[in-house]
Design a protein around this nucleic acid. Structure first.
Lengths: 187, 187
DNA sequence: TTTTTGATTGACTGCTCACTCAACAAATTT
DNA sequence: AAATTTGTTGAGTGAGCAGTCAATCAAAAA
């Protein structure tokens, strides 16, 4: 019913399948069951639609993942929760997660203000810094640790998305992968 | 002098900066110091140019990296050589390495026959399988190991490319990162 | 009820772009 | 030297696309 939402859903699906420039706005609109002009009522330009979609998805992932964290948890429990729920979300929202990466390897990334990207990463960075101070993690730069753990998550998601295991096998692999990366970054 | 090469160089540079669809063939040609029509003498379509560029770059990386391997080396030495030289190549050929990832997150990937992708990965997969058989690596599927190590390399490259350290600091980080991933995948 | 405001439509426009082609130039073959 | 093949040019073509807009519709405000 909500046409803006329909447009966003339609755009996501088509962008992931055909790429940003491989999907005309007319197709996004018709696929959403909406006239071509309606798209431009909600989004001034196609670029604005792309960026809006990215910000929404990034926001959904972040709020979901951080809603799972209990501040009374130990640092290790926090990392485990973050890791597990990021993967859980990514596997449940394959298109969204793929879109994030697609966006990161596109020129659109340049239109996100750098300080906003820093802000997005801030909670993660602070967790890493705290864990380094507490002597839990190896004394490495927090942004290096974040990049390495992030890559690990991306790679694991890619593997699991392609493999298509059942839930049981999936969480076995995730648990094993967490132990591996945890061993890697802890002292 | 070689116009085909000029076109490929120009295309790489512009694709990395503006994306595939953000760079018109006319710009590729003029940037290469060549008339618009000349591009189509060497490449039937723009898509063919993109795919040709991808295959060349992938080929260059593979031949370079495997030329560094000595078959008398131990498995660990082979892994270390592979790891170090992939990163060395990636840092020396930033645009090329970025292009590979950009290509992987584009619809162009679909036009590479799946068996060719399997072939590209074959030498790596065989190394991993051998190392698992010899009891050096953890008994995990070779394609999972490859994906995880691959992600590690991508992440590390991304970090180093952004950080812009000098050669000394760079190889310190690379060595440290190798120890970390090696500890992670070995028994 | 009447007015105003906002939502929706789709034909239309102007522009960009991939690709063509006829003409010319250079190199290679006979 | 003539003939043939191969390389190069850039104006031109047609298709596709982002974004516009005048008209219609819906619903809330006056």
């Amino acid at each position: 019913m909500d046409k803006q939402k329909k447009i966003l859903e339609s755009a996501l699906q088509l962008f992931v399948e055909y790429g940003f420039h491989g999907t005309p706005t007319s197709k996004i609109a018709s696929n959403a069951g909406v006239a071509a002009g309606t798209l431009f009522h909600y989004f001034k330009t196609k670029d604005e639609l792309v960026i809006n979609l990215y910000n929404r998805i990034k926001g959904e992932l972040n709020t979901y993942v951080y809603s799972q964290i209990d501040n009374n948890d130990t640092v290790e429990a926090k990392f485990r929760t973050l890791f597990n729920h990021t993967l859980y979300w990514a596997l449940k929202n394959n298109q969204e997660f793929y879109f994030i990466q697609q966006f990161h390897f596109s020129p659109h990334l340049a239109s996100i203000p750098p300080d906003e990207l820093v802000n997005q990463a801030k909670p993660h960075i602070e967790l890493f810094e705290q864990a380094v101070r507490e002597g839990i993690l190896k004394p490495l730069p927090a942004d290096l640790l974040l990049t390495l753990v992030g890559s690990h998550v991306y790679g694991l998601h890619q593997y699991l998305a392609k493999a298509g295991f059942d839930k049981k096998r999936e969480s076995e692999v995730i648990d094993q992968a967490f132990e591996m990366i945890w061993d890697m970054i802890t002292i």
